[in-house]
Simulated assay, not measured.
Amino acid sequence: MNKFEKKLLNSRIAVLSKDKHMQDYSLSFQLCPFYHAQTLIDSSISFEGLPLPSYNLKDLSGVKLIFDQDECDQFNGCFTINSIHNPVEL
């Protein structure tokens, strides 16, 4: 398998959402399509279980969030390529 180059990942839109029954948020980055191993890939990177102080983006603008290691371990980041789920660290 060809080595995957991180520079191929460019987001075109980010979506912040909250399950009305949960207190945590999900953040998904829809990626610009790119070629990997002669295949056009259209994918996203998603994180679930983010404890954010607000649902409103205007409240989060310019805010620096610092999470401890236990919180980071619960985020469940995922990048899908060729139908394979790959864990992602935030």
Rank of each mutant, 00 (worst) to 15 (best):
M1I: 04
M1T: 01
N2C: 15
E5L: 11
K6P: 00
K7E: 12
K7F: 08
L9S: 04
L9R: 10
N10G: 15
S11Y: 12
I13R: 12
A14D: 14
V15W: 14
V15L: 11
H21Q: 15
M22K: 14
Q23I: 15
Y25S: 05
P33N: 10
Y35D: 12
Y35L: 12
H36K: 02
H36Q: 05
H36S: 03
A37Y: 02
Q38Y: 15
Q38T: 12
T39D: 11
L40V: 02
I41Y: 08
D42L: 14
S44V: 02
I45F: 07
F47K: 08
F47R: 13
E48Q: 12
E48F: 03
E48I: 09
P51Q: 10
P51I: 10
P53A: 06
Y55W: 09
L57T: 01
L57H: 01
L60Y: 03
S61D: 15
V63W: 08
F67D: 08
Q69M: 14
Q69A: 14
E71N: 04
C72Y: 13
C72I: 13
Q74R: 12
F79L: 01
T80E: 03
I81L: 10
I84T: 13
I84V: 14
P87K: 04
V88M: 09
E89P: 00
E89S: 07
